[in-house]
């Protein structure tokens, strides 16, 4: 057998062995076996000296090709084997992706807080300040400064917890407005404020009454404030809180500290205005009280009603939350049942 044939035979044999190496160690052994210093290829090449000089380049070329073929085959096989190993490893690492994630403990803001924050953020964006006042007020600020002198019939509408004859639990957040108006320096610009907070009424707690609840009131005082501005502001508020499809309508009402006084209805979120039991088949739900600040209120706060005027509005986040989420008992807001508190996702 000539060298040529030997080389071809070696190649066939080697390729066969390589393709049958079923793990990396075996492949390595095959490599050392064939290509190593003591391997058959080296052995064959040693026989080069015995062939005629003229034939040597040809045989050399052939032997190189055989070596390349074998090396190539080994590398190919190696990458096949490695890939298989990796695949096996990955297969072993498979997990059940449907198992629940590790809980990250995260508390929720109270639903009423969410509504208040929402309103605060809207009005901050429109250049309003947020001002909180005392919860224990004087009769003067809670009533008298708001055009509710002693014995005014409208005081019945908000029966009050008194501490002494002159000191009481505020029955509305409006005294904050009276206090702020009194202090505000109008030469420095308009007053635009909202006052969120807790208020108290002499009511027996039941599904729809609570002796404690929340209010957010707003006030704007400047030289050129119109009732149209009030309407536009309430519309903006309704759209922020409920959505763009919600409309606002105004109806006459009565509050001692505003005139004209209006009640603002918003499209019923249950039926979107078609009429249902929630809205007593009117398509509207009453959510806000508002009006143009009464000149007496301005006067009492030391603001000249001939020069300045403005609007005020107020709403109850508790009632809002009840309507918005269908909560049927106001006491739920103050029981702090964790199963209740955690229902109101912030993005809802």
């Amino acid at each position: 057998m000539g060298l040529h044939e030997q080389l071809e035979e070696l190649k066939e044999k080697s390729l066969h062995e390589i393709s049958h190496a079923d793990h990396l160690k075996k492949l390595d052994a095959v490599r050392v076996n064939i290509l190593g210093k003591k391997g058959p290829l080296t052995e064959i090449l040693r026989g080069m000296k015995d062939i005629p000089k003229a034939d040597r380049p040809k045989v050399g070329e052939l032997s190189n090709r055989v070596r390349d073929n074998i090396t190539e085959a080994i590398e190919k096989r190696r990458s096949e084997l490695e890939k298989a190993i990796t695949e096996k490893k990955l297969a072993d690492e498979e997990i059940d992706v449907t198992l629940p994630g590790k809980p990250v403990s995260q508390g929720q803001p109270h639903v009423i807080q969410q509504i208040i924050d929402n309103i605060e953020d809207l009005f901050l964006g429109m250049g309003y300040q947020v001002i909180q006042g005392p919860e224990v007020e004087t009769d003067k600020y809670n009533f008298e400064m708001l055009n509710l002198p002693k014995d005014h019939p409208a005081r019945d509408m908000q029966d009050t917890f008194y501490i002494t004859d002159e000191i009481l639990m505020r029955s509305q957040t409006s005294p904050v407005q009276a206090r702020t108006m009194e202090k505000h320096d109008f030469s420095k610009g308009p007053l635009k404020m909202i006052s969120p907070g807790v208020v108290y009424r002499r009511d027996t707690d039941d599904a729809t009454h609570s002796h404690q609840f929340h209010q957010v009131e707003g006030l704007v005082i400047d030289k050129h404030i119109t009732m149209g501005d009030l309407k536009g502001t309430l519309e903006t508020l309704a759209k922020e809180l409920f959505g763009d499809r919600f409309e606002v309508r105004l109806r006459p009402s009565y509050f001692p500290f505003t005139e004209p006084s209006v009640e603002a209805d918003v499209t019923c979120f249950n039926c979107m205005g078609k009429g249902c039991s929630v809205c007593k088949h009117t398509g509207w739900i009453e959510v806000l009280g508002a009006g143009m600040v009464h000149p007496n209120v301005l006067k009492m706060a030391g603001v000249d009603p001939e020069v300045y005027g403005g609007f005020a509005f107020g709403l109850g986040p508790d009632r809002f939350a009840m309507l918005r989420y269908g909560v049927d008992d106001i006491r739920n807001f103050y029981l702090n049942d964790v199963r209740f508190l955690t229902q109101f996702s912030k993005k809802g």
Binding site: E120, F123, L124, G125, M126, G127, Y128, Q129, V130, G189, P190, K192, V220, D222, K223, H224, I225, T226, M227, G228, D229, K231, G232, T233, E235, T236, R249, L250, R251, P252, V262
Partner: peptide
């Protein structure tokens, strides 16, 4: 009230922040 215009207060700018 339906016939009132719907506007927002104009006048000097105020900064609203907490």
């Amino acid at each position: 009230y339906d016939n009132l215009p719907s506007t927002l207060p104009t006048g000097a700018t105020t900064i609203g922040r907490l």
